[in-house]
């Protein structure tokens, strides 16, 4: 198991290096950073001095190494657009996105899993058919459309929920949270629901398919033949066997939630990283874009590692094979 973790860590490192390389390349391929930093009227000498100061005349590998060295310390330079250190800008936006993604992920799992189990067990029931039809809608409607419909209904017509922004947040150190005020909760509901719908239906359909698959297996039939109660068969035996694929997909989906958040944040003017990233693209704000890419890649990698570790908790076959030094 230890060897396996080391191997996964190495793989993660390679992924991170590749992403860092792409981020770094942005600086060289998208415009000249010096142009972005000094005005039109700067002289050639001033520009050259800045180039030396920024190390832009150094050989490529040295520049890349310096980029990584800084990035590891959280230093991605200064935002062209906001003229503030990128790390500060991100720090103000990160909590908004992570809280949104967290609520969406919890909703998707807490609602999607039981619905998947229900529709898997009661395949032919009326409730299952209704849910499956609804889930088709959930999967095929574009996020922004759902967002706009929600705004129309709950903000414009009913006036129950705010249509944009984070509402009141409470600052805890550098972290600003929605979770401590009523207005904060009210603000996060619609974006989180919008963001989670796709993943919720995905998890529901996945769990349903896996349940139906597992219920056909011999060990489930044998569990019934042993006279176990339906509850033990369905939840003790069947559900646990659906967990490995469900953990995988859920883990990957948390990554996609961060990506999807770009659209949701735009619709709801949610001041998170997705919105920041879109604005950065519009202004060719390379340091922010580079930092966003690296950060999102990092989150992906961490989630994947956690998913791998969860497998071990769930499936004894992996524990023995790997620790036995096999492979």
């Amino acid at each position: 198991m230890f060897a396996f973790i080391i191997r996964r860590l190495l793989q993660s490192l390679i992924v991170m290096l590749a992403v860092a390389f792409i981020s770094f390349s942005l600086f060289n391929f998208v415009g000249d950073p010096v142009n972005n930093m000094v005005g039109q009227e700067a002289t050639a000498e001033q520009r050259e001095a800045l180039r030396v100061q920024l190390g832009l005349n150094d050989p490529f590998p040295i520049q890349f190494a310096r980029f990584i060295g800084n990035a590891v310390q959280g230093d991605f330079g200064v935002s062209y657009r906001l003229s503030r250190p990128v790390s500060d800008v991100i720090a103000t936006r990160l909590p908004a996105t992570l809280e949104l993604v967290f609520v969406a992920a919890v909703l998707a799992l807490v609602i999607g899993l039981p619905l998947g189990v229900y529709t898997g067990l009661h395949r032919h029931g009326f409730g299952s058919k209704v849910l499956l039809t609804l889930s088709l809608i959930g999967i095929s409607l574009p996020t922004f459309l759902i967002g706009i419909m929600l705004i129309l209904i709950f903000a414009v017509w009913l006036g129950w929920l705010p249509s944009f922004g984070r509402g009141d947040t409470v600052q805890i150190g550098w972290w600003s949270t929605n979770f401590l005020t009523v207005a904060g909760w009210k603000s996060i509901i619609m974006p989180a629901v919008t963001l989670c719908l796709f993943q919720l239906t995905l998890i529901m359909r996945l769990v349903r398919a896996e349940m139906m698959e597992v219920l056909r297996t011999d060990y489930i039939k044998f569990a019934r033949a042993r006279g176990l109660s339906n509850r033990a068969v369905h939840f003790g035996h069947a559900l646990k066997n659906t967990m490995v694929p469900v953990i995988t997909i859920t883990g990957l989906q948390i990554g996609s939630l961060i990506a999807f958040a770009i659209i949701t944040e735009t619709v709801f003017q949610w001041p998170g990283m997705g919105l920041l990233f879109l604005q950065a693209i519009q202004f060719a704000d390379i340091p922010v874009m580079a930092a966003y890419l690296c950060l999102v890649a990092f989150i992906f990698v961490v989630i994947n590692l956690m998913v791998d570790l969860l497998y071990y908790a769930v499936d004894p076959r992996l524990r023995v094979e790997r620790s036995g030094g096999g492979h």
Partner: peptide
């Protein structure tokens, strides 16, 4: 009534001792 199935490789739940 007890049952013995054909395939012992698939009759037992792999996730439980």
């Amino acid at each position: 009534i007890g049952a013995i199935f054909q395939d012992p490789l698939t009759s037992l739940n792999p996730l439980y001792s």
